[in-house]
């Protein structure tokens, strides 16, 4: 009977969060789906109703035109593909920088681990917008980096770095690096180090031991970290907008422009719906990985 009592208490505790999140997180996406089948009009609100009820009965006004537009207009297709490409590349770079960092922190003397981890997390606490902004001053044509390189005599003319895909990569890697390091650290620090000793005793060289023992054991961390970087950066708006150029087309920016620039709410809704469909797979994988880690 005790378990039934705990479940009842838990349900009562959960009531308020459940209602809040159903109304303000689940319901909004239902509204997005609905409006993605509407047509834009000039007015308030700037979209048509899906069903018109008149004297002659009701008429269905819903249209799939927005989705046809997304599938046929090369701009949107290219924006989705480019977003996935940029996010995947940035995730890989994050992993290449973040893995050795997490490894070094996890193998540092125990009293050093928390301060070292703190130094990775601290930038995450300072404003995201300002951290992206900091790179404008560094990367622009007459910026700090170009000035320094010219002063050192390494280059004669400033390199075009601002408003390029390169700047977008820098921005994403810079902003999302802590999300990669934290889960990697969590798996690496829990690893049983006697396994490495066993491998060494059996004649494994350090590099072999890393490849055959450490790397396979850190898969959950690699998966979680990569997805935590990949999913939000696919829909990133601030970084491509402030650091990117005309060729760094990303879906978050296209959505923003459709909404704020063109005031086309239905197309913006269709863009968000398709993006959700694209990202729901990675999101489910992330949840599965995290649940497995919790139990394991």
């Amino acid at each position: 009977m005790k378990r039934g009592h705990a479940a009842r208490t838990a349900f009562r505790l959960a009531a308020a969060p459940l209602v809040w999140l159903l109304v303000l997180f689940a319901a909004p996406f239902a509204v997005v789906l609905k409006i993605s089948f509407a047509e834009p009009v000039v007015g308030q609100p700037p979209y048509t109703r899906l069903i018109e009820i008149g004297s002659a009965g009701w008429r269905l006004l819903a249209t799939g035109a927005n989705y046809v537009l997304l599938a046929t207009d090369a701009l949107y297709v290219e924006a989705y593909l480019n977003s996935l490409r940029v996010a995947a590349t940035a995730t890989l770079v994050c992993l290449l920088i973040g893995y050795p960092m997490a490894y070094a922190i996890a193998r540092a003397p125990e009293r050093w681990r928390n301060p070292l981890l703190m130094l990775v997390v601290l930038p995450f606490w300072t404003s995201f917008l300002i951290r992206v902004y900091a790179w404008i001053g560094i990367l622009s044509t007459n910026g700090i980096l170009n000035n320094a390189l010219i002063a050192l005599g390494i280059i004669d003319d400033p390199l075009p770095m601002m408003n390029t895909n390169f700047a977008v990569y820098i921005g994403i890697v810079y902003s999302y690096l802590p999300f990669m390091v934290l889960p990697l650290y969590a798996t690496l620090v829990r690893m049983d180090l006697t396994l490495l000793e066993a491998a060494a005793d059996l004649g494994c060289r350090p590099w072999q031991a890393f490849r055959k023992v450490t790397l396979p054991l850190s898969w959950p961390g690699i998966a979680a970290g990569s997805l935590l970087v990949f999913i939000p950066s696919t829909g990133e708006f601030v970084i491509p907008d402030l650091l990117g150029g005309p060729d760094s087309l990303m879906i978050g920016k296209v959505l923003w422009t459709e909404f704020f620039g063109n005031r086309d709410w239905p197309v913006a809704s269709a863009l968000a719906t398709v993006l959700l469909v694209v990202l729901v797979g990675p999101m489910l994988v992330l949840q599965a990985v995290e649940r497995r880690q919790e139990q394991g």
């Binding site: 838990a10 959960a14 999140l21 997005v32 829909g235 708006f237 978050g252 968000a272 959700l276």
Partner: peptide
């Protein structure tokens, strides 16, 4: 095990990774 637990877990996982433009628009 209480009714709605898995729904709650799902709803709590969403906002952590949902791109901001989607949450804002929704």
């Amino acid at each position: 095990r209480f009714p709605g637990r898995s729904v709650l877990l799902g709803l709590l996982a969403g906002p952590l990774v949902m791109p901001e433009v989607m949450l804002g628009l929704a």
